[in-house]
Simulated scan of single mutants.
Amino acid sequence: MTPVRHPLVDALKVVAAQLIVWHHLSAYGPLSDALWAQAPATADWLYDHARKAVQVFLVVGGFLAAGTLVQAVDGRRFLSLVGQRYRRLVPPFLVALALAAGTATVLHRWLSPDLQLASGSVGTWLAHALLLHDVVDVPAIAAGAWYVAIDFQLHALLAGLAWLATRLTRPERRHGMALALLIGLAGASLLHVNRLPEWDPWALYFVGSYGLGVLAAQATRGHRAAWVAAIVAIGVAALAIEWRDRIALSLTVAVLLAAWATQHAPASPIAQPPLLLRLLAAGADRSYALFLTHYPLVLAGNAALARWPDLTAHAWGVAGTGWVAGLVVAWAFARWVEQPLYRRLR
C-alpha cells in the first residue's frame, strides 16, 4: 500500500533541514567570521534563530511517532520498537561520522582548532555508536550528533510509556493511560526540566516539544478543539513561567499540525501528486541524510578560505556552494547508503 503523505509535515522537515545547514555554516570557523563581517544581521539571525528549527523536528517527530501509544506493547514488543529505531538511526549515522572524521583528517592542516577532529579513539566511536557521547561528555565528531541520541531516547521513552500503560490498565483504557503518562512527562518537562540546561543530554529535557507533537496527532482521531485546547494550555502555562522562543515555536508548530491534520485529513493516496508535493516528499525523505552529511561541507568551506584567502571576499558564495553541494551529497547518501542500510537491517 502506498503510504499517505502529509504535505505540511514534509514542508516543515524540508525547511527545518535547510535552516540547520545554514545555522552550522554561520557557526563555525573563519567562514562564520567572514559571513558575520559581510552581512552581520543575516549571519546573526542564522546563528541565533535558525538553530531553533530543531524544535520543528522534535514536534514533527512526536507527531509521526504518536501511533506507538495506540499499540499494546509487552516487553518483547518494546525491545522490537527500540531496536527498530536504533537500526533506522545509527548505521547511517556512523557512516556519516566516518565521512566527517575522514574529511577533518584530510583537511586538518587548513582547519582552525575548533574544527579539527578532537579524538578518533575507540572510546569516542563506542560512545557515539551507543548514543552516549553527550552523557559521558565525549566531544562530538560532527555537529548535530546530539540530536540523533535525543531522537532515539524520545522514541524509546514513548515505547516505554506504551509498555507501562499496557501493564497498568485494561486494553480499553490503555491508550488513555499512555496519553495521561505522556502529558504528565511533557508538562514536567515544559514547566521545569526544560529550564535546566544541565538536563539537555536527556530526553526529559525535550519531551515537552515532542509531546506537543504527539498531542497534535490526536487531532487526526477527532475532538480537535479539545486537543488544541490541551496543547495551548500546556504551552501557555510553560511560557507564562518562563518565556522561551524555542517553546513558543514548538507550540506554534503543534497547533498548526493539529489544525491541519483535522481539516485536511488524508483520504485515499493520490496516484500522481502534483510536482510540488513530489518535490517536498523527496526533500523530506532526504532530510535525515542532509542532517547527517552536511558537516563535511562546512569543513570544506572553512578549509577553502584558509587555503585560498581571496575567497574570504566571497564568503556567502562559498557558503551557498556548500549548501548546494550538501543537497547533492544528501541525495547520494540517501540513495546509496541510508536506504540500502534501512532495507537490509529493518
Rank of each mutant, 00 (worst) to 15 (best):
L185S: 06
S189W: 11
L64V: 15
E338R: 04
S287E: 08
I141V: 15
A259V: 15
V9W: 02
Y147N: 01
P3C: 02
R224K: 03
G213Y: 08
V14K: 03
W308R: 03
E338Y: 05
H24C: 10
V298P: 02
H133T: 04
A325N: 04
A178D: 08
A66S: 07
V122K: 09
L168S: 12
Q116I: 07
S26N: 14
R221M: 08
A248G: 07
W163A: 01
N302L: 06
H264S: 03
D44G: 12
S268V: 14
L19Q: 08
L249C: 07
V56A: 00
A248F: 13
A219K: 02
R224C: 05
H192P: 00
V56M: 01
F63R: 02
G123R: 15
H6E: 03
L290P: 00
A226W: 14
R85M: 12
A65E: 03
G326S: 15
P113A: 06
V207N: 09
T124W: 02
R5A: 02
R195V: 05
W45P: 00
W243Y: 13
A267S: 12
A300C: 06
D10L: 02
L126C: 03
V14E: 04
A238H: 01
A306E: 09
Q38F: 08
S112F: 01
A216F: 01
P91R: 11
W110Q: 02
V328T: 10
H223W: 14
G301T: 08
G83C: 09
L276G: 00
F93N: 00
H128S: 05
L277V: 03
Y28M: 10
Y288T: 04
S189P: 10
G29V: 01
I231V: 04
A334H: 15
L164F: 11
L157G: 02
H23V: 10
R286W: 03
M1Y: 13
I150C: 08
I241N: 05
L276Q: 00
D151W: 09
R51G: 12
V138A: 10
P3F: 05
G322W: 05
D137M: 14
Y47L: 13
G326E: 09
Y28V: 11
P201K: 14
G83R: 12
H294F: 11
S112P: 04
Y295S: 00
A282G: 08
A11P: 01
L158E: 05
P340W: 10
Q339H: 15
V255D: 01
T105R: 13
S26V: 03
